Amino acid sequence: MSGVVRIKRVYDDPAPEDGYRVLVDRLWPRGVSRERAAVGTWLKQVAPSAELRTWWDHDPARLDQFTARYRAELDANPALDELHRLLHDHPVVTLVYSARDPHLNQAEVLREYLATRRYGPR
């Protein structure tokens, strides 16, 4: 992976320093138009499965289990190839998410996952 990976809430104003914005939620955020979201790609396939997302429900007590389960899903996820390509094509990529908590969200887990993995084509 080359470049910088950031995370940002979709409800925060887009900024030039965001670089290429990738929405990493399975569902489109409520009340946000496509223009307002200003994402280059909606990569919902890298989001946690519906079952995992429902089970977790952003419960801080389940964060460690959620992280382990989500990382296991990512290990087997072919959609990471597309994200990997975007990370190589853009010097800055911002993973955009809709959760309220800037520390308790799947984009933070995904960013940490990406920082610990080097990818090649599958």
Rank of each mutant, 00 (worst) to 15 (best):
V5F: 04
L52G: 04
L86S: 04
T41S: 02
A47T: 14
S98P: 13
G31V: 13
A37K: 01
A99W: 05
V24F: 03
Y11H: 08
Q45R: 11
V96S: 03
G3N: 05
P29V: 07
A115H: 14
R26V: 10
Y70E: 05
A115V: 12
E51S: 14
D25L: 04
S33T: 15
Q106L: 02
A68D: 07
A50W: 09
L80C: 08
L43M: 02
A115Q: 11
R85T: 15
H88T: 13
A47C: 13
I7M: 03
L43C: 03
Q106E: 12
R21K: 06
T116G: 07
D59K: 00
G120E: 15
K8D: 11
Q106M: 02
R6N: 12
D64T: 14
L80R: 00
H84Q: 07
D75G: 06
V5S: 00
D89I: 09
D64F: 06
G19S: 08
R118N: 09
E82L: 08
T67W: 04
T67L: 00
A15M: 08
S98L: 03
P14T: 05
P91G: 08
T116F: 01
D57R: 09
V96F: 02
P78D: 05
T94M: 03
A99N: 08
P78W: 06
W56Y: 15
G40Q: 04
L80Y: 13
T41Y: 12
K44H: 14
A68I: 13
D89A: 15
E108R: 09
A15Q: 15
R122Y: 15
V4S: 06
R30Y: 06
S49T: 15
V24R: 01
E51A: 12
S98G: 15
L80E: 06
P29D: 05
H88M: 11
V92P: 04
Y113V: 08
P29H: 01
H84D: 11
A50L: 14
G40S: 07
A38V: 12
W55A: 08
D13P: 11
V109E: 00
L43D: 05
T116C: 03
G120L: 14
E17R: 02
H58D: 08
R6A: 10
R21T: 11
G40T: 09
A61C: 01
A107S: 04
D18M: 06
R30L: 09
A50C: 02
Y97M: 05
G120D: 12
Q65E: 15
I7L: 08
W55Y: 04
L74I: 14
P29C: 02
R21Y: 11
R69S: 14
G19T: 11
V92M: 01
L23V: 11
R6E: 12
N77V: 10
P121R: 01
G31R: 01
W28E: 05
T41N: 01
G40A: 02
M1F: 13
A37N: 04
